[in-house]
């Protein structure tokens, strides 16, 4: 199964919008392509939710456009068959049952009630579907939101913070679901402010800050860049090793009593150089940055709301 590539895309082109004097979107541009999970990350207030609302035609941008499958969302006649979205899982009439919530959505798209029961199964709601949604836990609400997003069997799926409130089982389920949706050829856009959630899920990343894209790259590329060719060396003679390596033009930093981090020299050359000079070493490994580190590195200058470091003793 694969989606036509033009249908299964989100194109965001030069969006600008301000709330008062504060620019919320400042030339936001990126494309979500089919067949992969695109992570949409940025610190709080970077403009993730606003971008998603503009994509859905809920908010209007002052400049630029957002296209779903090549057309503006508001021109779609059965939009849930083109894009399924989960924005705010608690956006529910509390006294309505989960099934009835899905039922009116289905009716609005001309979908049969049978489809409702299918997505209830798919989202793992089961018997809870006939309970009042007001009594749902956050995790159950997320599942209900996922069910609503999948209702129209859309080629594009857009989820805002889908991992929020999920228990470990739920997180595993959500990762599996996202991977499966992408494997089916859909374009999947998943926002998060926690990079670690996307570590094993996203294939591609759009990192934003201050209302514009900072990085639009594949996960592996980002990691490679963040790792920056650093090599970690474990040796019983760190001083001698440093001396030898400096001679070859590398920069070393002692990161432990018997560890050095080397920059400017690939691992293979390091091994060859040390062996040639008879420096003993027990381990040479390429340093691998975590996605979190890479992300922090990228967004360091764009974080809007930074916590003040807690004082040493509070009481």
């Amino acid at each position: 199964m694969s989606h036509e590539s033009t249908k299964a895309t989100i194109e965001v082109i030069g969006l600008r919008k301000r709330f008062g004097p504060q620019p919320a979107l400042d030339g936001m541009t990126f494309t979500v392509r089919p067949g992969r999970v695109t992570g949409f990350v940025g610190p709080n207030g970077a403009g993730k939710s606003t971008t998603m609302r503009v994509i859905l035609g809920l908010d209007t941008a002052e400049e630029g456009k957002a296209l779903v499958g090549g057309v503006p969302y508001r021109t779609l006649r059965r939009p849930l068959r083109h894009l399924g979205a989960l924005l705010d899982a608690s956006a529910l009439q509390p006294s309505r049952t989960a099934r009835h919530h899905l039922l009116w959505l289905a009716h609005s798209q001309g979908l049969p009630a049978r489809r409702v029961d299918e997505v209830i199964e798919q989202a793992g709601l089961g018997t809870a579907a006939r309970r009042r949604a007001g009594g749902f836990s956050l995790g159950m609400r997320q599942r209900l939101g996922i069910a609503a997003a999948l209702l129209g069997d859309p080629p594009v799926v857009m989820l805002d913070e889908p991992f929020n409130g999920l228990d470990p089982d739920g997180i595993v389920w959500m990762r599996g679901l996202l991977a499966e949706l992408a494997r089916q050829g859909r374009a999947v856009l998943v926002s998060s402010h926690l990079m670690s959630e996307l570590e094993d899920t996203a294939d591609h990343l759009v990192v934003i800050g201050h209302g514009r894209v900072i990085a639009d790259t594949s996960v592996s590329q980002l990691l490679a860049e963040a790792s920056g060719g650093r090599v970690t060396l474990r040796t019983s003679a760190p001083a001698r090793a440093a001396q030898v390596l400096h001679g070859a033009g590398a920069i070393t930093v002692a990161t432990g009593p018997d560890t050095l981090t080397i920059t400017g020299l690939p691992d293979a050359e390091t091994v060859a150089l040390l062996a040639r000079n008879g420096v003993p070493f027990s381990q040479v490994s390429t340093h691998r940055a975590t996605l979190e580190e890479a992300y922090l590195e990228l967004t360091r200058d764009t974080v809007q709301y930074r916590g003040i470091p807690a004082p040493e003793a509070t009481r």
């Binding site: 859905l56 035609g57 021109t75 939009p79 956006a91 529910l92």
Partner: peptide, 14 residues
């Protein structure tokens, strides 16, 4: 109040 209008408008943008 419940933010449901966004869901409604997403389902029917008109």
């Amino acid at each position: 109040r419940h933010g449901l209008l966004r869901t409604t408008m997403t389902a029917t943008p008109l």
